[in-house]
Design a protein around this nucleic acid. Structure first.
Lengths: 188, 188
DNA sequence: AGAAAACTGTAGCGCATGCTACAAGATTCC
DNA sequence: GGAATCTTGTAGCATGCGCTACAGTTTTCT
């Protein structure tokens, strides 16, 4: 899919991979080049050699995480079209699953920092939202049209709100999934 | 409501007030003592004298903002009980109003930083969620009981998701308010 | 083999941060 | 009026940050 991949690019890719691990574990905030280098048993000098600047490094890591997340979602049980209420239930379970918690944590960081306009997070947040919306839309078993777009945006709104609330105060959305599954089933 | 208020406390309160203005305008991230001091025409030395440490300063500002927001909401048109669908519509308009955008921006920062476990944001996020939920519950014209709690949490989930999505990508929740207003009306 | 290019280690610059030491004014209280 | 306390300015410490200069080593190419 890409040119033969030079040793430089291979190494850079490997570093990006391991940096993504760290970001998913600890978040993006405590990203300091020296600390990252220590965790990877290299030097900050090396990181800058392969990424030229920190913001470029962050960009690469965000891209990597986004791709990983897309892969995780693609490989999940949610691989076919479902009516809105059933999709909501399934997606809700999926996104609040502990296995995806690291991703949602990073996503929370991105949206909040992006909401404040900070680069490169703003850009990442916008791209993420569009990606999420498409992901939802592709899995909704609903006739194409404006209504479907609104439905997708609505489901996304719920999922976004729920993951953030659950991250901050676990249990604070108990029963909400069922509430809206019923509401959506009724509206269909 | 409190002891006579020493000059010290008065000055501290005034500083907190003006710091809250800055936080609402620029967010919490670029909070550096020297910059804040310059903006207030004082010195970082003074800020530390009145707040003893930066984290205490942040805590004071967050409290102040929370109180202001509560006051703004209490003084809004949303002062009586409404059925869920109508409340949702009204609250949605209120919270996405440009006048409240600064508050929602800070709130986004709090939730995201809190989701990552950073103090004092985590604490502030939890308190905020509980406050929001109570605010919603007090205005829902619904019979007391478990269903009301779920309903309040559901409305909160929608509002939380919508404000974040709108901050990151304005227009991304077009039509969603009406969608759920109908759904909630139907479920009642 | 020798030149050129790619890679990596060491050291440190310049800047920003939260915070402190110290002392000088200002205010209060007897 | 003088002592004690409250308030404020100046200067600077210690640390951490992103990043760079420079030199040395390794690899690649002809």
């Amino acid at each position: 899919m890409s040119p033969p991949a030079s040793p430089f690019e291979l190494k850079r890719a490997e570093l990006t991979e391991r940096l993504a691990d760290l970001a998913l574990r600890d978040g993006m905030s405590p990203f300091a080049l020296r600390d990252l280098a220590a965790a990877l048993a290299t030097s900050d000098r090396m990181l800058l050699y392969y990424f030229t600047s920190k913001s470029e490094l962050v960009r690469a890591v965000l891209r990597r995480i986004s791709r990983r997340m897309a892969a995780a979602l693609a490989g999940s049980a949610l691989d076919r079209r479902l009516p809105p209420d059933r999709f909501l239930t399934q997606a809700w379970s999926l996104l609040t699953d502990p296995a995806l918690a690291p991703y949602m944590g990073v996503w929370a960081e991105i949206t909040a920092l992006g909401a404040r306009g900070e680069q490169p997070y703003r850009e990442a947040a916008r791209a993420g939202i569009v990606g999420w919306r498409n992901w939802v839309a592709e899995r909704l078993d609903v006739a194409e049209g404006p209504h479907k777009a609104v439905l997708a945006a609505g489901v996304l709104t719920l999922l976004e709100g729920a993951t953030l609330l659950e991250l901050s105060l676990p249990g604070s959305t108990a029963g909400v999934r069922e509430l809206f599954a019923e509401a959506l089933a009724g509206a269909a």
